[in-house]
Design a protein around this nucleic acid. Structure first.
Lengths: 216, 216
DNA sequence: CGGGCACCCCGACTTTCGTCAGGGGCAAGG
DNA sequence: CCTTGCCCCTGACGAAAGTCGGGGTGCCCG
């Protein structure tokens, strides 16, 4: 099996050679290019099509996040790992949004870097401990509240379900009535029943349940 | 550096020995225990305190998810990787909710298993490609909509911000007025202004923005 | 210094919501 | 067959939400 080809991008030479040294200890990994800024990193990725691109977040010209965005477009085969000093929350979201497959803190154990390269080369996601907790928790929380909401919504009749969906989108009773071909009074009665079953005091609370349940 | 100690739990002997064989190719990993059901897996984890526990989802007595839950309680130092045949969505959420650090498909490349063990032993999260996409997308979507919502909310004045937070929790204007020590008319005026700035047609739509922005 | 401006406040008026008390259809069970 | 229960529908009425016009303050800038 051929070695994993890697591009390293960081504005500091010391960091680049440090990373090179770490990766050199694994003979399944080969560093094929180096860049000192994001712009150059994108060019080199386009030219070399490496399996993995290691990008520092802080770089001149084009930061790691923007570079990751571009790489996702020009070379989808290349998996991006974003490197950063702190697990800044906002960065994580943006990096993963840009299609990064990995997020690694520079303070990580060197072995972790190697593991991360292998992981993303296989197409998997690799998240540093500090980051992983946030991402996973978010996923779990969203899933959990969605499940809870869905369970509550199950108690509703078909018609109430229809009404709730429109209500949750922010429509007025009159609009809902028109959409369902009934008069407004009917919709109001349904809403009343929904509030009762969902244990909500007004339509705002019901709307949030609808939103969580994914009836948007 | 001592080898990573691993427990393998699967109800089929063939699978267990297969996993053993794969892990044996890496001399940084040592399988210290095997279990054929979830109950036994938990006991052995308690006894051996391995670094990593590989749990099949489908097991008698106690399935992998329930076992993961218990392990998280009795041996927090042990990182759990859940193994499954399909990347069933519901399982992913539950597994990660139970504190699993990794989620691996059995169809994965054997090297991936080794990489995963190293990753979670370091405390990182490892997600199989098929699963990673979902988790990351969810995190990104939530983060993106939250960011968008927060940006819209920034246009509000301090007072309007206060009102929106209470509004988003489903409180009536009268309740908001009491909480902020003003009369109801004032709250209504604020709400009106909020609707204007958020480009919402009624309080339900405003509440959803508040909810997304995390003003709950 | 005197607008202009943004913010917070208020009350009267209109519109929308939510409750209450029902009527008709339809299926299960005595 | 008739009752009981559930669902969907409806109109009337009080309650909440939203709009409109306006008053008072502090701040910045010509």
């Amino acid at each position: 099996m051929p070695p994993i080809q890697v591009l390293v991008a960081d504005d500091e030479v010391m960091v680049r050679s440090g990373i090179r040294a770490i990766l050199a200890t694994d003979d399944g990994i080969e560093v094929v290019a180096e860049a000192a800024d994001g712009r150059r990193a994108v060019e080199l990725v386009r030219a070399h099509r490496p399996d993995v691109a290691l990008l520092d977040i802080r770089m001149p010209e084009l930061d790691g996040l923007a570079a990751a965005d571009e790489i996702a477009v020009v070379a989808p085969v290349t998996s991006v790992i974003v490197l950063t000093t702190f697990g800044q929350d906002d960065y994580v979201a943006r990096a993963l949004g840009g299609g990064a497959a990995g997020f690694l803190l520079k303070a990580s154990d060197p072995r972790e870097l190697i593991t991360a390269v292998h992981a993303v080369a296989d197409g998997a996601a690799f998240l540093s401990p500090a980051v992983a907790h946030r991402v996973v928790r978010s996923y779990r929380d969203v899933g959990a509240s969605a499940t809870r909401a869905r369970r509550r919504v199950e108690a509703l009749t078909d018609r109430e379900h229809d009404v709730l969906a429109l209500l949750g989108a922010g429509h007025s009773n009159a609009e809902i009535a028109k959409a369902l071909h009934v008069v407004e009074g009917t919709v109001k009665a349904h809403v009343s029943s929904i509030l009762d079953k969902l244990d909500a005091r007004n339509r705002v609370q019901a709307a949030i349940v609808a939103y969580e349940a994914g009836l948007a």
